[in-house]
Nucleic acid binder design. Structure first.
Lengths: 227, 227
DNA sequence: TACCTTATTGTTTTATTAACACTATGAAAG
DNA sequence: CTTTCATAGTGTTAATAAAACAATAAGGTA
């Protein structure tokens, strides 16, 4: 039941965020081919005929970064006929969130990408295609998810301190929160349980460690206090 | 720059809501061909090579209902390889909202649809493909939009009463709201201005008419009081 | 003139959010 | 062993927002 008309190509683009060096980073590639050769772009590629969109996104991301097991979520599908000068390409964008340890590995260059690099979202280069728009949209979604779901916990180790959690929010929202109100809010949401451990090897008062109770991504309105 | 491999087909599906007879309705078609012949389904069709996704959605919707000038918003893209038994079809779903007057016209049967009909969302038939899931998702989005944006106003005439507005919310959320709290909230949001008119031809105290100040879809957290 | 129907309005209570500063603990430095 | 340094940890009050709640007003109809 395929039409007899020319059909669009379908690609996935993956906007990958990570937190490194106390700053929110996004993974970009430098294009090795025309169009937009030598411009920075969001990594992506074509969907294969027998893989799902999510599988395609996972595969492309792993090819690019070697990272598996990430949080992955569909963002939006961009399909303007003119968005790609090569022809009709509809792209389904995904946003991925990986934690620092997982993203530590060396980034590889690939056929289409002469270079891959983490950029701070505050110091972005000019981007190819309509990728600036897509990235902006992804940022919005990321913040929304931090505000209304438990996604932030996916970036923390099994056991973490409340200060670690707060720092995450401060980086993503680029803003400080009041420590007392933040902790009060988190506790009132019943998301975490204290472990009996405390963190050692710190040269100050050792913080308590907590573990997360709920499912990642669950909707809870964490709304950062002091909004 | 098309790959030399078989490519998926790209379709759009449009979940169309309207409010009729004090109830939230969705437009479905009865399939005239296999697969799922004689099952009800969400109307949709293939994207043409030179039209945008949104244009395709508008076109399909107009073909189905004759309605133009509707609120239209992209929902999600479903792309499981097995979701359509005919082959690889990726469908970009849209949700549309039209008001009662616009949706009053006769629905036409088309090549693929032997019948088109408005169903109350409370009395849905069994649906073809993965359409039950898509519809459920659309309902969620509709409610979210009513809660956090000014979308509801797109269903009202230029001049409307506060009771009309409240009824809309009560239908969409399938719940009553306290009249005083509802009105207080709406007024505090500075969304409307009173006109100097009142509605005539009613056999009770005639209500004041208001007009809407802002842009449709603007984010404002109308959150229905009494949530 | 009474009655019916819907419109309109305000107060109190409760819950949530915002603002705000001091004490505690352990390691390291002197 | 005392002081210093750095971060952890905690509670109260004020302001704002939400929830609960019922009586009066206006016009048409009987």
């Amino acid at each position: 039941m395929k039409e007899e008309f020319p059909t669009p190509s379908v690609a996935v683009d993956i906007i990958t965020f990570s937190i490194k060096e106390n700053s929110l980073k996004v993974l970009l590639i430098k294009r090795g081919v025309e169009p937009f050769k030598d411009k920075w772009a969001i990594p992506g590629g074509f969907v294969r005929i027998k893989e799902s969109l999510e599988e395609a996104a996972k595969r492309e991301l792993e090819e690019e970064t070697g990272v598996k097991e990430v949080y992955l979520e569909q963002l939006y599908t961009f399909g303007e006929p003119s968005r790609d000068p090569r022809g009709r390409v509809i792209t389904v964008s995904y946003f991925a969130l990986i934690n620092d340890e997982k993203s530590e590995q060396e980034l590889k260059a690939t056929a289409d990408a002469s270079e891959a690099k983490w950029f701070s979202v505050k110091e972005l280069p000019e981007l190819a295609f309509d990728h600036a728009r897509i990235l902006k949209y992804a940022m919005k979604r990321l913040r929304w998810k931090f505000e209304y779901t438990t996604l932030a916990f996916s970036l923390l180790p099994k056991k973490f301190t409340l200060t670690q959690l707060q720092k995450l929010y401060e980086i993503v929202f680029d803003r400080k929160f009041d420590k007392r109100n933040f902790r009060k809010k988190i506790r009132s949401l019943d998301l975490i349980t204290p472990t009996k451990e405390i963190q050692k090897d710190v040269s100050n008062r050792p913080p308590k460690l907590y573990s997360f109770k709920k499912r990642i991504g669950e909707i809870v309105e964490i709304l950062p206090p002091n909004k």
